[in-house]
Amino acid sequence: MTTLIYLLIAYLLGSIPTGLWIGHSIYGKNLREFGSGNTGTTNTFRILGKKAGTVTLLVDLLKGTLATLLPIWFGGSWLSPIIIGFLAVLGHTFPVFAHFKGGKAVATSAGVILGFAPSFFLYLLVIFLTTLYLTSMISYASISVAICALVGIIIFPALGIILPSYDLVFSVVIGLMATVILLRHQDNMKRIKNKKENLVPFGLNLTKQAPKK
């Protein structure tokens, strides 16, 4: 019963549509009607600004972290905390509070990893920030992180760094989260290929994207 409660709480935490609610309650805007139509961090930054985007990023990150830490803090679960955390990712992607139309799961997935494997989170954060600066694209950085996460769970245990040993459950959940992220970024991949992806206002834009104004 305790495990089921954790799973339910994790899903409901993930289902909180942070950007959507901030847009409605504070700015009087429905994020689905602007920009990419996505309710996640990137579109919130683009449409509502830095403050709203930062709050959305932090809340979406903490949703995953809290869901993962609850069974660690209070015990009583026969499931690995990272599995429970993954329910927050599913909630973020298919939120019950937003007609099951959610974000792309990057921030919440990062929060799960932060709660379960902080050193692996730091490795992915470095990849994300470096790629973001080089490409000026949040989407490219997110895709790169998903791929590097898959590479990391294979290489690091063999080298004995960051991840000291192979963990089947951890590897499977990382694989699932990476798959969700990659699937949710298919449209971005097409725009990147066509040199039309949206950019952040800094970085080197090495791939020479030229989005429509």
Rank of each mutant, 00 (worst) to 15 (best):
M1T: 11
M1E: 12
L7E: 10
L8C: 13
I9T: 07
A10W: 01
G14A: 10
I16N: 07
I16R: 06
I16S: 11
P17Q: 05
P17C: 13
W21Q: 04
S25Y: 15
G28L: 08
K29E: 07
N38A: 13
T39I: 14
T39D: 06
T42G: 06
G53N: 12
G53K: 12
V59F: 09
G64R: 01
L66P: 00
L66F: 06
W73H: 09
F74T: 10
G75K: 13
G76I: 13
S77M: 06
W78F: 14
H92L: 05
V96H: 06
A98C: 04
G103I: 02
A105T: 15
V106P: 00
A107G: 07
A110E: 00
A110Y: 10
G115T: 11
F116H: 11
A117T: 15
P118T: 11
L125H: 02
L125F: 13
F128E: 09
T130S: 12
Y133C: 05
L134V: 07
T135V: 08
T135F: 00
V145C: 11
I147C: 03
A149M: 14
I153N: 05
I154E: 07
P157F: 06
A158F: 09
A158G: 01
A158T: 08
L159K: 03
I161G: 04
I161F: 01
I162N: 10
P164I: 14
S165A: 14
L168N: 07
V173R: 00
V173S: 04
I174L: 05
I174G: 07
I174N: 01
G175L: 08
M177D: 04
A178H: 04
I181N: 06
L182I: 15
R184K: 15
N188G: 06
N188S: 07
E197N: 03
V200S: 01
N205G: 12
P211S: 11
